[in-house]
Nucleic acid binder design. Structure first.
Lengths: 167, 167
DNA sequence: TAATCGCCGATTAATGTTGTCGTCGATAAG
DNA sequence: CTTATCGACGACAACATTAATCGGCGATTA
């Protein structure tokens, strides 16, 4: 069980969109070329990011993507939710409502009225994970990368996209 | 993306193993009949729980399963890990180590030596979820069910398994 | 008006999920 | 001592999902 690789693709790409000049865009072609990932698949990920209001797409020649809001207002969870949806990780098929005892109609009604403790616990655990992701923004990630990577490599990266940026 | 339904099956079944007399067991047949789930599939889940040391299997006629240790020492996470494995939910295909800049050998070596901030963040978030699950034990679940369910339904459930319990 | 971009739906190969089936060895009962 | 019943295990199958590819669409720019 794993989230799709699209989450990783998306987050890595969004980093490059943070520092570009206002009104500039970066195309799928450049993003996929830089990272060495599938162009068509990446474009699907960006369709989802667009629908979620994380990026804005500019169609036509010299088109591409840019962030739709401040990187301060985009959290890791926003990206995960955009790509993977908000479906809970833990399934609840309500098996407690299909137990042997539920052959009794009255008991079944009573069971369906009360929550499933196991599922509640799972949702609580998931929520804890989401809260960590909600507290990490793209701005934070950008600063963290400044701290971890060499200034030269960050500069080279920006240069790569600056050369092909569509202004 | 979801954890398999086996987690839910397993946790619900383990509840019934808590309150049985010492040295008694409950068979797959009774568990699957009570919950209305597939017998063969459930037996696979219990194979995993056995390998993980959560339950003990008794082979032969009148065989079945019982908890291998105190329900105080079995957490939700133990069960999830037994059924699903400990593989992280978030994939990291190390795409940072395959970027355009990594065509430079020296840069590639440097990149591989430094951690991926995005993946670190994901693992931190997952760990937060696991910690919630680690703090919930089968004993806690049992008490919670006592609180939420009617005494009658709990009694009926125990009765169901007592009738077929193998002592 | 032609080339280039993102958008979108259909398709596909590989993989994972949710089972089933048949065989095995262990065990209790007749 | 045989037989029926249990769990263990591997093979298999149906179905869904994942990670892509492909082709046609409309928008844009040169």
């Amino acid at each position: 069980m794993q989230y799709s690789i699209g989450v990783e693709y998306g987050l890595h790409c969004l980093v490059y969109l943070i520092d570009i000049p206002p009104d500039a865009t970066i195309g799928i072609k450049e993003l996929s070329a830089f990272q060495g990932v599938s162009e068509t698949y990446l474009s699907k990920i960006f369709s989802k990011l667009t629908k979620a209001g994380i990026v804005v797409s500019v169609p036509g020649v010299k088109g591409g993507y840019r962030l739709s809001k401040s990187p301060d207002d985009i959290s890791f969870w926003d990206v995960v939710e955009a790509v993977e949806g908000a479906t809970p990780i833990f399934q609840c098929k309500k098996i407690k409502d299909n137990s042997y005892l539920c052959q009794d109609e009255e008991y079944a009604a009573c069971s369906k009225a009360s929550p499933c403790v196991i599922n509640m616990t799972m949702l609580e655990a998931e929520e804890s994970m989401r809260n960590v992701l909600r507290n990490k923004t793209l701005s934070w990630l950008n600063e963290e990368l400044d701290r971890v990577l060499t200034p030269q490599s960050r500069k080279d990266t920006r240069q790569f996209f600056a050369n092909s940026t569509n202004v």
